[in-house]
Design a protein around this nucleic acid. Structure first.
Length: 190
DNA sequence: GCAGTGATCATA
DNA sequence: ATGATCACTGCC
């Protein structure tokens, strides 16, 4: 007993789909744009919290001089060359963890940086707020990992703004000018 | 405006 | 082994 029956007139429960390789196995800029308004879900010690994603950045691949993968395959960038939907998490400035998800086909070293979600504006604050660090680097984003993405948009209509990426001037004007940062218009992070 | 912080990578 | 760099944040 105790199990809910799935027969009869009970309406079928609609679970928000977990975004997987089908979603992430596309161009980074498409994924980055599509992630705006989606949910980043964190579960720790049985407590689950969803955060609406409001800001992302696309890193297109080895040809993108702003991307870590432009320097080739290294120990750090190895996960970027792996399958889509895997988390790429690294430390910058000795104290801030960045949450990325690998996109595109394997061997195509592209990723999307999650810059803001829910109340956490800024990639460093986001990782700190969700208590994310290197433990999830190289791990598939799925419920068993405690961090995953869901197509759970609450807002029905919203505008997405595109602008230049932050903190990548080293890539030169051609790449730093490109509008590969996406944000929810009206949010503090837009 | 700029200091803090330490992994990572190139150079040797 | 050493030094430069860094997909940032917080406080001046």
């Amino acid at each position: 007993m105790g199990e809910a029956r799935r027969t009869g007139k009970r309406p079928r429960q609609r679970l928000p789909p977990v975004l997987g390789p089908d979603f992430f196995g596309r161009n980074a800029d498409t994924v980055a744009r599509d992630l705006i308004g989606k949910a980043l879900v964190r579960e720790q010690a049985g407590t689950r919290t969803s955060y609406m994603i409001t800001e992302t950045e696309a890193y297109l691949g080895e040809h993108d001089l702003a991307s870590h993968s432009a320097r080739g395959r290294t120990q750090r960038t190895e996960v970027m060359f792996g399958p889509p939907g895997v988390l790429y998490i690294y430390l910058v400035y000795g104290m801030h963890w960045m949450i990325n998800v690998v996109t595109g086909a394997p061997e195509h070293a592209a990723a999307v940086l999650i810059r803001s979600a829910g109340p956490f504006t800024g990639p460093g604050r986001l990782a700190r707020g969700l208590q994310i660090s290197s433990a999830l680097n190289g791990v598939q984003a799925e419920p068993s990992a405690g961090l995953w993405f869901e197509d759970a948009s609450v807002a029905t209509t919203f505008r997405i703004q595109a602008g230049p990426r932050i903190g990548i001037d080293y890539a030169g004007p051609a790449w730093s000018r490109r509008k590969l940062r996406f944000s929810l218009k009206g949010c503090i992070s837009d």
